[in-house]
Structure formats: structure tokens, C-alpha cells
């Protein structure tokens, strides 16, 4: 008799069921459509699209990127055409991929965040939003709300009022105690927290004697940050009851499993998309094989095993 021994990778984040725990990190996957030549988006648990703000933003001046050991710095500064442009020009193009569409939301005041969330709430195919209180590359807002529990609470509350579906709050690692911020988001109504956003960093061109980035400092991502991220996920998963989504330098299936063992219910893959545009599909495949090798029939069994 044939038995179906394919392990179940399905997980649930708030009210949102995912076919597997793998999502694309905002800002590294465009609007999804940039990657369809390389990968079918139906292999993803969800695709999280670029940070969207109330007004259009031009972002920071070039240069915005510097390669660093096992990673990169960026200082894009939330370049996007604003929520109205997203609704009128982008949403229709991307709303029917067979996966969960999650929009990342940013702002410079709690009201801004709430307003964007409210407008997105009218789009039925936006299954969740991820609130970015952790962008290190903008002068106002962004990370400012993610470095104090009061800031995290005020933004989460404002969005919670305007957004009826699954609400994820994306946390900054540039804090003394990330669990304090996570608890504030949980208390204000977040359905999940995702972490970590980029670590503040800096690089200098010693020949030109100038900073590599126009903004001097930027956000570090890639495998270089992974041990920091795993540690913070482990701490946070023990401090909150809502699901923790882990990200930071995930490049392969083993990295994803590492985060789940440390307490992540799901993961996001970011910078690795730049090097291998089909990496997310490969990660899902590898996780499934890992489960078979380890006799795990349901991926939820391993969450927070450490």
C-alpha cells in the first residue's frame, strides 16, 4: 500500500495559513514579478513586497550599497511610489500569484502607518501587512519607532485600528533588549513579530578616504548577521506568545531550519535572493527533505526545540 509520507510544512501566522514557512523579505524581492522567470511564486509561503509609504519617496542618493564580508550594506531609504501608486498601478499586476501577498508598510508617524494600512485594507488580496518600525535608513520614523517600546506600541496600535487582517511587526536589532519591543508590539495587538531587520553598519573606502555610502551608515544584511539574528529570535520566542518570524542571512535550507529550531514559526529570505533568484524554492525543497531525514512529519514539531 502506498503511503503519502511527504512531511507537512504548513504553518499558521495569526489568521493566515501558509503552505510552507518560507517568505521573501521586503526590499529584496521587488514586487515578486521580477523573479517569475526563475521561480514559480506558488512555491512560497508568502511574498512580502517592498516597503510602502503614504507619500512617494525618492530614497537616498547613490551610492546606496557596499559589499562587505559575507554580506552587504544598503541605504536605499524606502524608495517607493507611495500607497496610491501601489493600489492603482502595481496591485493588479501582482495580486493573483498563487501565494500570500504581504505588503510591508512604513511611515514617519503612527497616523501615517495607520493611513497606509487603512487604504491597503480595501485590497482583498493583501493577506497581511508587515509594519516596518526598523528601517535604519530614513531620517524620520522608521527605526525611531522600533527602538523604544512606546514607539513600537504607538505604531502597532494605530495600525491595529485600521487593519483587520494578520498584522506582523518587523523589529530592529539595533536595541539593547529586543524582547521588550516585541512584548510591546504583542500587547498592542500584533499577530506576529518578524526579526531582524538590518544591523546598523558602516564601511569606508580607504583609497578615496570617503564613506562607501552616501548616508555614511547603512543596514547590514547577509550571512554576516545570521548568528545575531538567530540569538534574537531565540530570545524573543521565549518572551512572547505570538509567532516569531525569523530572518537575517538565510541562504539555504539548513539556515532556515536553524531559525525554526531557535523558535521561529516561519522565516524570510532576503539578501540571498540577489545571488540566487530561485533560492526560496530550493530552501522549501531542502526543508522537506530534512524533515524526511529526521522523521519529522509536521514542521511545527521543531519550532523552538532549542
Amino acid at each position: 500500500m502506498l503511503t503519502n509520507n511527504k512531511p507537512s510544512l504548513a504553518v499558521q501566522i495569526g489568521g493566515l495559513p501558509l503552505r510552507n514557512p518560507v517568505m521573501t523579505a521586503s526590499g529584496t524581492f521587488g514586487y515578486g514579478e521580477e523573479f517569475t522567470d526563475f521561480m514559480s511564486l506558488d512555491t512560497l509561503g508568502a511574498y512580502i513586497v517592498k516597503g510602502t509609504t503614504l507619500e512617494p519617496r525618492e530614497g537616498n542618493d547613490y551610492p546606496r550599497m557596499a559589499e562587505t564580508p559575507s554580506g552587504m550594506l544598503n541605504a536605499v531609504g524606502l524608495q517607493n511610489k507611495g500607497v496610491e501608486y501601489f493600489i492603482s498601478h502595481i496591485y493588479d499586476r501582482i495580486k493573483d500569484f498563487d501565494s500570500n501577498l504581504i505588503v510591508n508598510v512604513s511611515g514617519s508617524s503612527p497616523d501615517d502607518y495607520g493611513e497606509v494600512a487603512g487604504r491597503l485594507a480595501r485590497l482583498s488580496n493583501v493577506n497581511a501587512i508587515e509594519v516596518n518600525i526598523s528601517c535604519p535608513n530614513v531620517k524620520q520614523g522608521g527605526m525611531a519607532f522600533g527602538t523604544t517600546w512606546r514607539g513600537a506600541e504607538s505604531v502597532t496600535k494605530a495600525v491595529r485600528k485600521a487593519w483587520p487582517r494578520t498584522l506582523i511587526v518587523k523589529l530592529s536589532p539595533n536595541v539593547t533588549d529586543i524582547t521588550e519591543i516585541a512584548r510591546a508590539a504583542e500587547g498592542a495587538g500584533a499577530d506576529a513579530v518578524s526579526l531582524i531587520n538590518t544591523l546598523m553598519g558602516m564601511a569606508v573606502d580607504v583609497e578615496r578616504r570617503r564613506p562607501c555610502l552616501s548616508t555614511v551608515t547603512g543596514g547590514l544584511s547577509g550571512p554576516a548577521v545570521r548568528p545575531v539574528a538567530v540569538r534574537m529570535v531565540w530570545q524573543t520566542a521565549k518572551a512572547v506568545k505570538i509567532p516569531v518570524i525569523g530572518l537575517g542571512g538565510i541562504c539555504n535550507g539548513a539556515d532556515a531550519i536553524e531559525f525554526m529550531l531557535a523558535g521561529a514559526k516561519a522565516v524570510e529570505v532576503g539578501t540571498a535572493n540577489f545571488i540566487n533568484p530561485a533560492v526560496c524554492a530550493e530552501i522549501v525543497e531542502w526543508m522537506s527533505e530534512w524533515c524526511v531525514r529526521h522523521g519529522v512529519s509536521d514542521i511545527n514539531e521543531i519550532v523552538g526545540e532549542i
Binding site: 529584496t28 523573479f35 536605499v76 535572493n273 540577489f274
Partner: peptide, 8 residues
Amino acid sequence: ACGLGACL
């Protein structure tokens, strides 16, 4: 970085 219009 990406070459695909994703990272800006």
C-alpha cells in the same frame, strides 16, 4: 546588488 530591479 540584484540586477533585477528588486533591491533599488
